[in-house]
């Protein structure tokens, strides 16, 4: 046994522009050369209904595996191409016209309105991390993995309130 394919459950916790837990699913493949693990991953994070992030990536990686036993820790990293949508709620003051029956005419009022602004970006990024492989070299394996990622692009900072013209 030296190839594995499977699915994962997990998520990401972006630190910028806003800290949030964005859970989702993963598809992966690993080729095990005894000392090095080569991996391909597809991550789909932000699938929960309350997530502001919607994220997908495709990455390739290499990890050094410690030992050759059935429990194998590994560390390494790789590169990925990712696309992300980030929603922020923006408020703005809008002038609204309404008909006033008391004066039989139109009046204007200023009202604070809210809307969702979506910033969508894509590009490449890098990640480092590690994990533990259980039941290595068997027909069923389990991996627990944590990594730190940096994408080489920025997402818009949450603005809060903008002018009507800016909106």
């Amino acid at each position: 046994v030296n190839s594995y394919f499977g699915i994962g459950i997990g998520g990401m916790v972006p630190l910028a522009p806003e800290i949030e837990m964005a859970p989702g699913l993963n598809l992966f493949g690993i080729y095990d050369t005894q000392s090095i693990l080569f991996g391909i991953d597809c991550n789909l994070w932000g699938m929960s209904s309350d997530s502001r992030y919607s994220y997908a990536d495709f990455g390739i990686s290499a990890y050094y595996a410690f030992g050759r036993k059935f429990i194998a820790p590994y560390i390494g990293g790789g590169l990925s191409f990712s696309a992300v949508d980030y929603e922020t709620e923006v408020s703005y003051v809008a002038e609204r016209e309404y008909y006033d029956y008391d004066i039989q005419g139109y009046r204007t009022s200023e009202e604070t309105e809210y809307n969702t602004y979506v910033d969508d970006k894509s590009g490449i990024g890098a990640f480092i991390g590690g994990g533990v492989m259980l039941n290595r070299a068997s027909s069923i394996i389990l991996l627990a993995e944590v990594k730190y990622f940096v994408s080489f692009f920025k997402l818009a900072e949450p603005k809060g309130t903008v002018t009507y013209e800016q909106w």
Binding site: V13, L15, L142, A144
Partner: peptide, 16 residues
Amino acid sequence: KLFQGFMFNLKLGYGF
């Protein structure tokens, strides 16, 4: 700040 953070994952694989 660049878009960055942590990812965690529990994976189940079929080996052959």
